[in-house]
Amino acid sequence: GTEIELESKNGQREHYTATSEDEARKIIEKAVRRGIKRIELRGASEQLIRDMQEIAKQIGLQYRTDGSL
């Protein structure tokens, strides 16, 4: 699965493990709508990382991946 670590603007951290790319995408989209400061992805697919970079650029988000592409 993909591990997703979120940090909201007030510094609250949340951790999710998505079993599918679809689920990961839903978690990320929800977080973005809620207003999130930072997202870290571990074990994400190349496609998901590309999507994440696109989203991050659009809304000026900090993100990090573990680089295991």
Rank of each mutant, 00 (worst) to 15 (best):
Glu29Asn: 07
Ala31Leu: 08
Gln47Lys: 09
Ile27His: 02
Ile55Asn: 02
Thr65Tyr: 06
Leu48Arg: 00
Lys26Glu: 12
Arg34Asp: 12
Ala56Phe: 14
Thr17Pro: 03
Tyr16Asp: 00
Asp66Gln: 04
Gln62Cys: 15
Asp22Glu: 11
Ile39His: 00
Ile59Cys: 15
Ser68Arg: 03
Thr17Met: 14
Arg13Asn: 05
Gly60Ala: 06
Ile36Asp: 06
Ser45Ile: 02
Ile28Asn: 00
Ile27Ser: 01
Ser45Tyr: 01
Glu5Leu: 13
Ser45His: 03
Arg64Trp: 15
Glu3Asp: 09
Gln12Trp: 11
Ile59Met: 14
Glu21Ala: 06
Gln47Arg: 09
Val32Asp: 00
Thr17Ala: 07
Lys37Trp: 09
Thr17Val: 13
Arg38Ile: 06
Asn10Gln: 05
Ser20Arg: 03
Ile39Thr: 00
Glu21Asn: 06
Gly1Trp: 14
Ser68Thr: 13
Ile59Asp: 05
Ser8Trp: 15
Ile49Gly: 03
Gln47Val: 06
Glu3Val: 10
Glu7Tyr: 11
Lys37Asn: 08
Asp22Ala: 14
Arg38Cys: 13
Ile39Glu: 00
Arg13Trp: 11
Met52Thr: 09
Ala18His: 08
Ile59Gly: 11
Lys9His: 13
Asp51Arg: 07
Tyr63Ser: 05
Ile36Lys: 01
Thr65Gly: 14
Leu41Ala: 02
Ile59Lys: 07
Arg38Leu: 06
Arg64Leu: 15
Arg38Asn: 04
Gln12Asn: 09
Glu3Ser: 11
Gly60Cys: 15
Lys30Met: 14
Lys9Gln: 12
Asp66Met: 02
Ser20Asn: 14
Gln12Ala: 08
Glu5Lys: 10
Glu5Tyr: 13
His15Cys: 14
Glu46His: 09
Glu46Met: 09
Asp22Trp: 08
Ser20Phe: 03
Asp51Pro: 00
Ser20Tyr: 03
Gln12Arg: 12
Lys37His: 11
Ser45Glu: 01
Glu21Thr: 10
Ile4Trp: 01
Gln62Asp: 14
Gly11Asn: 04
Ala31Cys: 06
Lys57Gln: 10
Ile28Gln: 15
Ala44Val: 04
Gly67Leu: 09
Glu23Ile: 05
Arg13Cys: 11
Lys37Phe: 09
Ser8Arg: 12
Lys57Met: 09
Lys30Ile: 12
Gln53Thr: 09
Ile59Ser: 14
Leu69Thr: 07
Thr2Met: 12
Asp51His: 12
Ile28Arg: 00
Arg34Cys: 12
Arg33Leu: 13
Leu61Phe: 12
Ile27Pro: 00
Met52Lys: 00
Ile49Asp: 05
Gly43Cys: 10
Gln47Gly: 08
Met52His: 00
Ile27Ala: 01
Ile39Met: 06
Gly67Lys: 03
Glu3Trp: 13
Leu6Thr: 07
Gly1Val: 14
Met52Asp: 00
Gln53Gly: 06
Ile4Ser: 01
Arg13His: 13
Arg50Gly: 04
Glu54Gln: 12
His15Gln: 09
Ile59Leu: 15
Arg42Phe: 09
Ser8Glu: 10
Glu54Tyr: 08
Ile59Gln: 14
Ile27Leu: 04
Lys30Gln: 14
Glu46Gln: 11
Gln12Phe: 14
Ala56Gly: 06
Glu29His: 07
Arg33Trp: 06
Asp22Gly: 07
Ile39Asn: 00
